[in-house]
């Protein structure tokens, strides 16, 4: 199967197989007015299988969202047909309005306009903690 190379845009590579649709939705790529290719279950030497997303326009990607969903992703910025930058995402130290606190006793459940802020509590277990009520929440695995 051949997918055209992109000239100006972004390639999200080394996505854990099966996670590309979640990334598509969470980054709201459906709202972009350009071609977006989702390539699933590509053979990979490193991962066995992986997903890839290609976005055919310059786009400021939210690395915190990516790092939270899948910290192994590589982000390549393509300009004039050349890869000008490669970024490795990682589990972010702080998440703002990405996770929603599920503790019914937390102030975030009643206060209008409050940011849902979590800080990384345990990198190995991928656990985040609400800064207000300190309830832990596990990232999606």
């Amino acid at each position: 199967m051949n997918i055209d190379s992109i000239y100006n845009g972004i390639v999200l590579d080394h996505i854990t197989a099966g996670k590309s649709m979640q990334i598509y939705h969470d980054l709201e790529l459906d709202k972009l007015d350009c071609s977006v290719a989702i390539i699933k279950n590509v053979k990979s030497n490193k991962l066995g299988r992986k997903d890839i997303i290609k976005i055919d326009q310059e786009y400021s990607v939210n690395l915190d969202v990516l790092g939270y969903i899948d910290p192994d992703i590589t982000v390549s910025i393509i300009r004039d047909g050349e890869t000008i930058e490669k970024k490795k995402v990682e589990l972010p130290e702080r998440l703002v309005n990405i996770l929603i606190c599920k503790n019914p006793r937390c102030i975030t459940t009643t206060e209008q306009g409050i940011d849902h802020v979590f800080k990384l509590a345990n990198r190995e277990k991928r656990t985040y903690r609400c800064i207000y009520c300190e309830e832990d929440q596990q990232t999606v695995s």
Partner: peptide, 23 residues
């Protein structure tokens, strides 16, 4: 009664906040 309410208040307040108990 809500946990974290005084912390949120402290982020917005022009004067010192003392948490007198949050949930």
């Amino acid at each position: 009664p809500k946990e974290g309410a005084p912390l949120f208040a402290s982020l917005k307040s022009p004067v010192p906040i003392i948490n007198a108990g949050d949930g």
